[in-house]
Design a protein around this nucleic acid. Structure first.
Length: 421
RNA sequence: GGCGGGUUGCCCGAGCGGCCAAUGGGAGGGGACUGUAAAUCCCCCGGCUCUGCCUUCGAAGGUUCAAAUCCUUCACCCGCCA
């Protein structure tokens, strides 16, 4: 099965320019790129969809380029937004660029003997450009009529307006594609389906300036079965950065996918074969309670992002914390590694042990003491698996396993570790 | 530049001098039922040293015993006109 057929099977094809021509082009290795704008300190799991498609292309023998938008991130993409972005300072964007560069790199192979990956920053070719050059050499090729017709712009005009800055975004992105076409012979740009307009604008520019041609391919916007936005949890987005979303939380995010979504997610996010996914689908339908598909999904993605060792730790932690096993029976090393993944608070041995409310707040599981008190009042506060009551409840020294660790729980699955030092 | 409309808690959106920490919806949280699902039902949802106190209704001043609500100035957004 060829790459395009595989992508279609996984539901990863939204739009493409002449598909026959693209399939033909893909019979030989080509160079392709995807752009990521630094709009946050980290990519989130939604960005993973297209990033993993880029990886699929590399695995199929093509040359992948990941572009980090040091320039476009300073301007702001109007696509898919109904209001103007607030601009970030250059220092912030620079910092985010370097962090995202590292993240993206983890999914690509730079040492592949035949088709090594590349990471580029569009600031490299955009910043030397003068305003006059920009207007004369690039701007001249754009028709405002066409720019206005772009979905991203038209919808913003309806929704109240768009600044000249964001209006110009498509020109910058087009210029990127042109630049990569010239520098690296890049002939395919991938993106989310909201990027279609920007991508084809780039193709136009390549044709006008170079008389060349390239391809565009977009990936559908991932939706959940209930129509809600993918990738958000109570705590906000699920980030790739382990500082922002712990490996434990990352694993739990996938494990807690809804039944209706899990097979679809396996197709989109995993590199399992069709047979393996079909087998998981069968077992899932026969016994959803076992959640084999969920586990496979969580395991594969956590391994891909954080490595096999971390994944094992995280899984062991989940087993110990949720499972039937008694925490008290674990040896200190196992216990410590299980708890390593949890949000935590440390307290001094010398002082009195604070209340459950204070501890859970200190661990950052709730936003305020009021919220913590509310949890207690509502009966969602636990020490280990025992429900506690009363605002003034505090664990005692004997509640600490190995004289060191205690586990607090908020609701069904929010855990915190308390360490006595 | 002129005239008019707007800026309310995470989001949408009521309130238009006291009964306002502020109606309603969404999101979110806890409980029950389960499989660390979904659906459903009940409850909660600014903060704190919590029978009370403190800080919020774009910002800063002012009027008043009392202001999200009235006045002044400023900032930003939208519309119409130039």
């Amino acid at each position: 099965m060829n790459l395009l057929d595989d992508l279609r099977w996984r539901g990863l094809l939204a739009q493409s320019t002449d598909e026959k021509a693209l399939a033909e082009a893909l019979s030989k290795p080509i160079t392709l790129y995807v752009g990521f704008d630094p709009t946050a300190p980290s990519l989130h799991c939604g960005n993973l969809v297209v990033l993993l498609v880029l990886r699929r292309f590399q695995l199929a023998g093509h040359y992948p380029i990941a572009l980090v938008g040091g320039a476009t991130g300073l301007v702001g993409d109007p696509s898919g937004r109904n209001e103007e972005r607030s601009l970030n300072s250059t220092e912030i964007v620079e910092n985010w660029v370097s962090r995202i560069r590292t993240q993206v790199s983890a999914f690509l192979d730079f040492d592949a003997p035949k088709n090594p990956a590349r990471v580029v920053n569009n600031l490299d070719w955009t910043s030397p450009l003068s305003a006059i050059e920009f207007l004369r050499d690039i701007g001249k090729h754009f028709s405002v009529n066409q720019m206005l017709a772009k979905d991203s712009v038209a919808s913003r005009l309806d929704a109240g307006g768009i600044s000249y800055t964001e209006f110009s975004y498509q020109v910058l992105q087009s210029y990127d594609y042109l630049e990569l076409f010239k520098r690296h012979g890049c002939t395919l740009q991938l993106g989310g389906s909201d990027q279609w307009g920007n991508i084809v604008a780039g193709l136009d520019l390549i044709r006008r300036v170079e008389g060349g041609s390239g391809h565009a391919l977009t990936v559908p916007l991932l939706t959940k079965s209930d129509g809600s936005k993918f990738g958000k949890t109570a705590g906000g987005s699920v980030w790739l950065d382990p500082e922002m979303t712990s490996p434990y939380a990352f694993f739990q995010f996938w494990l807690n996918s809804e039944d209706k979504d899990v097979i679809n997610f396996l197709k989109v996010f995993s590199f399992l074969s069709h047979d393996e996914i079909n087998a998981l689908e069968k077992s899932h339908n026969e016994n959803p309670g076992l959640r084999e598909a969920h586990r496979a999904l969580a395991r594969e993605l956590t391994t891909l992002l954080h490595g096999a060792e971390t994944t094992q730790r995280v899984e062991a932690a989940a087993r110990a914390l949720f499972g039937q096993g008694e925490l008290g029976e674990l040896d200190e090393a196992t216990l410590a590694s299980a708890l390593a993944e949890l949000p935590r608070a440390t307290i001094s041995k010398r002082e009195d042990i604070p209340t459950w409310v204070d501890l859970i707040t200190a661990a950052g599981v709730v936003d305020s003491k009021s919220a913590a008190r509310r949890i207690v009042k509502e009966g969602g506060a636990y020490l280990y698996n025992v429900k506690i009551s009363g605002d003034d409840f505090a664990p005692t020294k004997s509640d600490f396993l190995c004289g060191k660790y205690a586990v607090l729980r908020k609701g069904k699955r929010d855990l915190a570790a308390i360490e006595l030092i």
